[in-house]
Amino acid sequence: MSAIGAVFSHCREAKRAAFIPYLTGGDPDLETSAELLEALAAGGADIIEVGVPFSDPIADGPINQRAAVRALEAGATLPGILEMIARIRARVDTPMVLFSYFNPLLAHGLQTVAEQAAISGVDGILCVDLPPDEDDGGFRDFCRSAGVDSIYLLAPTSTPERVKLVAAASSGFVYYVSRTGVTGVQKDLSRELQREVKKIRRRIDLPLAVGFGISSPEQVAAVGKVADGVVVGSALVRVVEENRGRSDLPELLAAEVERLAAPLLRSRRR
């Protein structure tokens, strides 16, 4: 079983959903970013998602767009981010997932990316604009050979056929996009979300994590009741944005992770 799989089975035993925070790698710079990823682990992350900044992030809202701009301006690259992950691997054993757009992966060569990711201690790769239909078996196979999980997404618009296709292609877990839309924070989750998540969980064997727009402990609690994992991204990226330059940013971030993840530790599922 992969490290990611082990986390979900551990959480399942503990009768709770996994907490999966996201930060853009290299935001505001690589050195700080390394400290922030460690802070996510210290705050209680079960799995950490690290975004690879891209110049044209069509699936991201304004908060993550600005983070990508900051990271790129500070010189972040995919090799730089992998190096950073390798560096903190000595101190952090929380599984890590790369969240990327396809072009930066393509530019470095898909086999190279899969192998280098594995060597750096990356446990899974999620490519937001690479549906399994377009993979041609290439990238997925490289990842499998390297021992890296391939995580694909499902969305509210996914047909039953696509649910089947995505589940068959994925390993580690499946990522369900909570709404039609881009990443960001939102006040209210859709009313159908819980029903939709339950429906999809019945159809797939892999754990199902839910993300996009989840930004408060209440929302984490609500999603945690039905999903195997809860992803919080923009809400944490915003903490970085608003407090960058402060020396206690890692502590602030760890406290925010603790606050957001708390409902999962309290409320045990049936």
Partner: peptide, 26 residues
């Protein structure tokens, strides 16, 4: 020729649908 050459939506190796899942069914 690669497999993708015969696929709808492709012009030789170029084309395809590299989009977020939300747009795939639409």
């Amino acid at each position: 020729r690669k497999k993708s050459d015969q696929r709808a939506g492709y012009f030789g190796p170029y084309g395809g649908r590299f989009v977020p899942e939300t747009l795939m069914a639409p």
